[in-house]
Simulated assay, not measured.
Amino acid sequence: LKVGDRVMALTGWGSFAEQVAVSGQNVLPIPAEMDFTTAAAFSMTYGTSMHALKQRANLQPGETLLVLGASGGVGLAAVEIGKAMGAWVIAAASTNEKLEIARKAGADELINYSEASLRERLKELTDGQGVDVIYDPVGGKLFEETFRSIAWNGRMLVVGFAAGGEIPALPANLPLLKGAALIGVFWGAFAQRQPQDNAANFKQLFAWYAEGKLKPLVSQTFALEQAAEAIDTLGQRKAVGKLVVKVR
């Protein structure tokens, strides 16, 4: 890194400011073809989903990937990265409008779980075999239902709890009966503990971006004075893709 470089950074908190000091290992050069708004939307979502699917799930070409909350920031990133890794991607969301966004991101199959039984549709789509990898940034009432739809040797990724409310629990016999794994994803800690692996992930992500395989969706931008409004939009689950606060 040198003075004048265009960079993106993981601050954790405090980035709604005109200037911010960040640990050097949390800073990455922005690719020449990427603008600042896209860069602001890139690191958290794509860093999380890449770590989840590569290091935690060890997703393999030809495997089936189910993405819950598929129109959100990390969900859309998971759809695109899953496709880039050669998976067959099923996107699940609560409205057809959200699913259309996931389809444009490359999802192979769509499930509107407000209109149909998620478990029954997954059984139909996988010929009763279940899903190899489940990416869940939502939590909530679908948590156990989706785990019951997992394949033998399947992996369920616990990414977050956007649904709010009580954090879901799982009967301990289910992983046993399915020969399956429940795997936590904490990208922030991974980036601090394994900075070289994180840098390698971003090298691959930037290559896919240059090839046009990753197309971050920024649905709204806000001025710095509107930062609270941006957070409120997220809190009300009105966001599609990413929201960006522009400092200048």
Results as ranks from 00 to 15, higher is better:
K213W: 00
A191V: 00
L76M: 07
A239T: 13
I81D: 05
R248W: 10
A40E: 09
L205Y: 03
L176N: 07
E166V: 15
G62E: 11
Q194N: 15
D108I: 01
G106E: 00
G154T: 07
K123C: 11
Y113W: 07
G14K: 11
F206N: 01
I90M: 02
G82A: 06
F143E: 03
G86K: 07
M85F: 11
P175V: 02
L214N: 00
L66F: 00
Y46C: 09
L125D: 06
G165D: 12
G165H: 11
Q192M: 13
G188Q: 14
M85Y: 01
A199F: 08
V27P: 03
A169L: 12
N153T: 12
K54Y: 12
A92G: 09
I90N: 01
L66E: 01
L217W: 01
L110V: 10
E97C: 04
L205K: 03
G160C: 08
T233W: 13
L157W: 01
T48N: 07
A163V: 07
R121P: 01
V185L: 11
L142R: 02
A32H: 12
A39L: 11
P137E: 05
V79G: 02
A21Q: 14
T48Y: 10
T233E: 12
W187L: 03
Y135M: 03
R248D: 14
L59H: 09
Q19N: 12
A102W: 07
L59G: 09
P61G: 03
M156R: 03
T45Y: 09
M50D: 01
L125F: 12
E225F: 00
K213M: 11
G86Y: 08
G140I: 04
E225Q: 14
A223T: 13
S117R: 04
P29D: 09
Q19H: 14
M50I: 03
G188C: 02
K141N: 12
N96S: 13
N112C: 09
G82C: 07
Q220E: 15
G154V: 10
N198K: 14
E145R: 12
R119T: 13
A93Q: 09
A189K: 13
N96W: 08
A239S: 14
G24K: 13
G164M: 11
K98S: 11
E166F: 01
R193K: 14
L224H: 08
L125P: 03
L59C: 10
T45H: 14
F161G: 10
V218T: 02
M85Q: 13
A151P: 09
K104A: 13
A227S: 15
P61Y: 09
A21P: 00
S71T: 08
A172H: 10
I167E: 08
E33K: 13
S94Y: 06
K123G: 02
A52Q: 07
Q196F: 06
F147D: 06
M44W: 00
R248Y: 09
Y113F: 10
K178Q: 13
R103F: 07
V245W: 07
G154N: 05
K178D: 02
A17W: 02
N153K: 15
